[in-house]
Lab assay of single mutants.
Amino acid sequence: FHVTIHVGDITFHIHGVSEEEVKKLEELVRRGADWREIKKTIEEIEK
């Protein structure tokens, strides 16, 4: 999957994300995680 996440003024683009990881990111966004937490999760996914 290709994912784009907008957190305030920050936009993250992630490529090659599995469905499971998409759900993890959706959950973070849904519970209102700040951009640092989302960035950390994205960095883990990209490894």
Rank of each mutant, 00 (worst) to 15 (best):
F12G: 01
V7K: 05
I38P: 00
E20Y: 11
G16L: 11
K24I: 15
H6I: 13
E44H: 04
H2K: 12
I38S: 00
T41N: 05
I10V: 12
L28M: 14
G16E: 05
D9W: 07
E21C: 13
E19A: 14
E27R: 05
D9F: 09
D9Q: 11
H15A: 12
G8L: 06
K40I: 06
G8A: 07
E19P: 10
E43S: 05
E46S: 10
L28W: 02
I45H: 03
T41F: 15
V29K: 03
I5K: 00
V22K: 14
E37P: 00
V29D: 01
R30H: 12
I45L: 12
T41S: 06
I38C: 03
E20S: 13
H2T: 15
K40N: 09
K39C: 11
L28D: 01
S18M: 08
H6P: 03
L25R: 00
I10T: 08
D9E: 12
V29A: 07
T41I: 15
V29I: 10
E43K: 04
V22E: 03
E19H: 14
H15Y: 15
T11K: 07
I14M: 08
G32E: 05
A33P: 02
V7W: 13
V3T: 06
D34F: 02
R30A: 15
I10G: 04
V7L: 12
R30E: 14
E43I: 06
T41L: 15
L25T: 00
I42L: 11
F1E: 07
A33E: 04
R36T: 14
H6D: 06
I10E: 10
I45M: 14
E46T: 13
E21Q: 15
V7A: 08
T4S: 08
V22G: 04
V7I: 13
H6G: 04
G8N: 08
V3W: 08
G16A: 11
G16H: 13
H15S: 13
I42T: 01
K23E: 10
V7C: 14
K39E: 11
H13W: 06
I45R: 01
F1M: 11
I42M: 05
I45A: 03
H15K: 12
E37Q: 04
I38R: 00
F1K: 09
T4V: 12
D34V: 02
D34I: 02
V3R: 01
T4Y: 07
I10Q: 11
E20L: 12
T41V: 15
W35K: 02
V7R: 05
D34T: 09
E20Q: 13
E37F: 02
K24V: 13
H6K: 11
L28G: 01
E46W: 13
K39P: 00
L28K: 03
F12A: 03
V22A: 13
T11G: 02
I5W: 02
L25W: 01
